[in-house]
Structure formats: C-alpha cells, structure tokens
C-alpha cells in the first residue's frame, strides 16, 4: 500500500465507522417490533387472500393493510400493529362468511 495514502484511508475508515455505528445500533433496537409488524402484515395479507379465494373479500380489508404499511414505513409500529391485526381478523371473518355459504341456500322469504 502506498504510504502517502494511509492517512486518507484511515480518515475514511473513521468516517464510515462514525456514520455506520448509530444506524447499526438503531437497527438492532427496533428490529423485534418492526419484524413483528411485518409478520402481522403478512398474516393480514394471507387472510385477505384466503377470503378472496372464496370470493368473499371485503373492501375494508385491503385499505387497512395499506394503512398498516404506511404506518410501518413511518415507524409508527403500534398503529401498524393494530391496523394489521384488524385486517387479519376481518380477512378471517370474511373467509368464514364465504366458506359457510359454499352450498346455495334459498332464503325463506322466497317461496317456490
């Protein structure tokens, strides 16, 4: 290595370390919650798709997931978690709604 370059290399290393350190620290700190949020959003998305598979998806569910993603990207994890959970529950009920009607049932008010 060229000795004349050594000081600049050291300087660069120092700068990199200074810049990187807090980022790494912060990442490590928020990781569990962010990961949990992503897990919940994925679960909500899966529930939404399951409801769609029986043609029973609600318009409200996708909107909640969108909002959850937006909250997540802003770092508002608690809000994102709540929204994702609500979306998942909606997806599950919507699936139930569709699945429970897999057989045609003519309502009692229509008399043949």
């Amino acid at each position: 290595m060229n000795m004349r370059r050594l000081p600049s290399v050291i300087l660069l290393a120092v700068i990199m370390a200074v810049v990187a350190a807090p980022t790494v620290a912060a990442d490590a700190a928020m990781d569990p919650k962010a990961a949990e949020v992503m897990k919940q959003i994925d679960a909500a998305e899966a529930a939404r798709k399951k409801a769609a598979s029986v043609e029973s998806e609600w318009t409200t569910t996708g909107k909640l997931i969108k909002k959850a993603r937006a909250a997540e990207s802003k770092g508002d994890y608690d809000k994102a978690l709540g929204l994702a959970k609500e979306a998942r529950l909606q997806g599950e009920i919507a699936y139930q709604q569709g699945a429970s009607q897999s057989e045609l049932r003519i309502p009692a008010y229509l008399k043949y």
Partner: peptide, 24 residues
C-alpha cells in the same frame, strides 16, 4: 347455477346478498 349462487350469497362487511335488497 353459478350466477344464481352469486345472487343469493351474502357478502361484504355489511353481509348483504343481491336478494336481501332486491327480493326481501
């Protein structure tokens, strides 16, 4: 039959079928 099934199936968060409004 599929069309008929769609017509009588309750759907959406409000849980209506076509028949809820247009028959009942």
């Amino acid at each position: 039959e599929k069309g008929k099934k769609f017509y009588f199936t309750r759907r959406g968060q409000l849980n209506f079928s076509c028949a809820t409004c247009h028959v009942q």
